[in-house]
């Protein structure tokens, strides 16, 4: 029989459980833990192209040469690339957009995404902002954005007049997997890894509960600025909202389809500006040479004093900007 003393325990648990029934906020509601997207916040700058709403902005004279900025992830956003606005003061019409399912752009279910729809979106964004058929168009892609830029060029080798690529993981699936594996090489007993995995017992969401999944994915961003991260960033990156579902969808598609975006690059004979960082231990000269060799004409540049996100921090930007500007002006 349970003693009188032991009966107090269930009473305490009962009291706790009733107290737990207070009115709280919902993690599924956008705006509570993550900002609303352009679908529900009309105050955000947006465009509607290719059947979807995108968070997007453009800076500079619309008749200048166009430079489209492609953020990484997949599932990151363009907030940490806003240094590139500076190019607007040097004769470029600089276009930023959060890719489909990323940042503050519209969300979709996982099975909607494909590499082709991401390429079609880029095509539609260029068409939206382009003011004349003679306007030169350049791409600046960072990380996954550099892979997307290459996938686009592989499909449309004559559409672009120049491209700046910052540490793309690879243009073939094996190279991408190898790089991602090195960049996520955390010890299984590390604080960084438990910060990523321990949260799964607090928060779960099904595959279409974007507010929950994006919040969780955003919490994991701390891994990139932990001291045991090999990518060498100087600090945390600013972001609006992570895109968890597009990230998972495109990685799963990569595993399934094993893409190769190099098959037509021989047709793109324009010089490519390919940058890699001094401090990213997971990248380095060997990987930069391996990946960039898919293009016939490459200007390979090391960005000193910076890590993977060299565009986002002062040292990297100071070293990157004049080289990038010289490259663009040379075309």
């Amino acid at each position: 029989m349970i003693s009188q003393k032991n009966k107090l325990i269930p009473i305490a648990v009962l009291a706790f459980s009733l107290l737990a029934c207070t009115k709280g906020k919902l993690i599924t509601d956008e705006g509570n833990l993550v900002p609303k997207t352009v679908k529900s916040d009309p105050s955000l700058p947006s465009i509607t192209v290719n059947g979807s709403m995108f968070h997007a902005e453009a800076f500079g004279n619309p008749s200048d040469k166009m430079l489209v900025i492609l953020h990484g992830g997949p599932g990151s956003d363009y907030r940490h690339l806003l240094n590139c606005k500076e190019l607007a003061a040097h004769g470029y019409y600089v276009v930023f957009y959060d890719q489909r399912g990323s940042g503050l752009s519209e969300r979709y279910s996982k099975n909607f995404y494909s590499i082709q729809v991401m390429i079609d979106d880029l095509n539609a964004v260029i068409a939206h902002y382009r003011t004349s058929p003679a306007q030169k168009v350049f791409l600046l892609g960072h990380s996954w954005g550099a892979m997307l830029a290459t996938a686009y060029i592989n499909q449309y080798p004559m559409a672009i007049r120049g491209v700046i690529l910052g540490e793309p993981g690879g243009f073939k699936w094996k190279d991408i997997k190898d790089y991602v594996s090195r960049s996520r090489d955390f010890h299984f007993t590390s604080e960084t890894l438990n910060d990523a995995t321990y949260q799964d017992q607090f928060i779960t969401g099904n595959e279409n509960e974007h507010a929950i999944l994006d919040y969780k994915f955003g919490l994991m961003a701390t891994a990139d600025n932990s001291e045991d991260s090999p990518i060498g960033n100087e600090g945390p990156l600013p972001f609006w909202r992570a895109g968890a579902v597009v990230n998972r969808a495109l990685f799963d598609l990569g595993e399934k389809e094993k893409p190769d975006w190099t098959t037509n690059l021989y047709q793109f004979t324009t010089k490519v500006f390919f940058a890699y960082s001094e401090r990213n231990r997971a990248y380095g000269l060997d990987h930069a040479q391996l990946v960039s060799s898919a293009y016939p004409n490459v200007q390979l540049e090391k960005i000193d004093g910076a890590g993977h996100d060299f565009i986002s921090f002062p040292a990297g930007w100071t070293n990157f900007f004049p080289k990038a500007l010289n490259y663009l002006n040379s075309l």
Partner: peptide, 19 residues
């Protein structure tokens, strides 16, 4: 909060997850 100043602290319910 420097990323998202309007983020809401506090109690969230009903269930936030389960495995």
């Amino acid at each position: 909060k420097s990323n998202y100043p309007d983020i809401k602290d506090g109690w969230y319910e009903p269930s936030t997850g389960g495995n």
